[in-house]
Simulated assay, not measured.
Amino acid sequence: MRFKALVALSTALLFLATPAHGSAFPEVVNGSAPSLHPEGTAYDPTRNAFLVSSIRHGTVSVVRPDGRTSTLISHPWMISTLGVKVDVRRQRVLVAHGDLGVGARSTPETAMHRSGIGIFDLRTGALRQFVDLAAVAGPGLHLANDLALASDGTAYVTDALSDALLRIDVRGRAAVLVRDARFHDPDPPTSFGLNGIVWHPRGYLLVVKSWGGQLFRISLGHKPSVRQVATDQPIHNGDGLVLRPDGSLLAVTNPLGPQGVSAVRLLRSRDGWSSARTTCLLPWPDVAPTTATRTPAGNYVLDGRLDVLFGGSGSDHFTLRKATFSAMC
């Protein structure tokens, strides 16, 4: 009951911060901007709009329900932007950034090495702080991929290219929360490890590993512990995660990695995420969905056409499509 009350409260706060016309979102938002290729998205209740990142340009843009797109955040230090989170209470935007080698400003020195979180003003987009996570995580390849926000403002960040999960407190001080060899396969070094992450109000994290499809439950506190969730099937090339108000977990998968397919699945657990089963699997009509975000109108799934970008070309178009599950799920 406590969990449901906490989620209900967060949902109520989201609605209170949202203009009354928030439910008027279309089923599909078709966005367009020159070679934007967004990988991450977050709903911004102060604007009743989406924020999206950019693998190609390292920016964060505002996307209105009618698809109009404008730049909110741009900084030359960010080569590619990935996960995005809106912190309304503290009026800030947190952005995971790195270099996948396909950004317009990518260099051999920064590719697979630059990794951090940018913290910006929600209203103006002005820089507040950069947090260098590569220096904290230590030697090797690094890529800040996604992040989750706890109610106290603590951010938890996945590094897709290392065995570290990182923590940033509300003052911007970073540390390794936990290391685990299961988080990343060293062969090849560029294999994708931890990706999507959510914070659970009961005090733990749920994190998916892309290559391998494992789901981990990470307890928080003085001595964090890692436990693999026993799932009925692997979440191959799992990407973004969304914790829904009813306690279920939405997971986005794509064919950008081994055995991945374009799909959105719903997982449920009856034992506090010691185990979980897939209760619904939606084949997705877009080619390479990466993540999703919760809005007052439902969950919207992003496809930034990364398949095109990684294939050596470019596209000006991206899609945010509503995910609708049947009552049987």
Rank of each mutant, 00 (worst) to 15 (best):
R47V: 01
R89H: 06
S32K: 15
W211E: 15
L149E: 07
T110L: 01
S313F: 01
F120L: 05
H97P: 00
L133S: 08
T11G: 09
G116P: 13
P245G: 15
L143R: 00
H142S: 02
R171Y: 03
T110I: 01
T154H: 02
D146S: 07
Y300D: 11
T69N: 12
S74C: 05
T18M: 13
T279A: 09
L215F: 04
S80L: 04
S210H: 01
G172F: 09
R56F: 10
G118P: 08
A164T: 14
L122E: 10
V261L: 12
T124G: 05
I73C: 10
G31N: 09
A263W: 00
V28H: 13
D187W: 08
W77C: 00
M328I: 07
A174K: 04
G118M: 02
L72E: 14
R2Y: 04
F15C: 08
V28G: 07
V86S: 02
S262W: 09
G311Y: 07
Y156V: 09
T71V: 15
R179E: 02
L267V: 06
T81N: 06
R244Q: 15
P34K: 15
R128Y: 00
R268A: 06
D239A: 14
C329R: 05
G83I: 06
F50D: 07
P255W: 06
V86D: 00
V93A: 02
S74Q: 08
V102R: 14
N299F: 04
L122R: 12
S275W: 02
D316F: 13
Y43N: 01
A12W: 07
T291W: 04
G196N: 03
S115Q: 03
V226G: 04
M1K: 15
H142R: 01
L14T: 11
D316K: 06
P34R: 15
A148W: 02
T18G: 14
L94F: 12
R294E: 14
P26C: 13
I117P: 00
A134L: 09
L51D: 05
R305A: 13
R64M: 09
L14A: 01
P189L: 12
L143V: 02
G247P: 00
L215H: 03
L250W: 10
P139N: 04
T231E: 10
Y300V: 12
G40L: 12
R227D: 11
V207W: 01
G272E: 01
E109R: 12
A96G: 04
S326P: 04
P188R: 14
L13A: 08
W199T: 08
V287A: 15
S70N: 10
H75A: 13
S225I: 12
A174Q: 07
L256E: 14
P201T: 07
S61K: 13
G153M: 03
E39D: 14
A164M: 07
P283V: 14
T278S: 08
G272K: 02
T290F: 00
R171E: 11
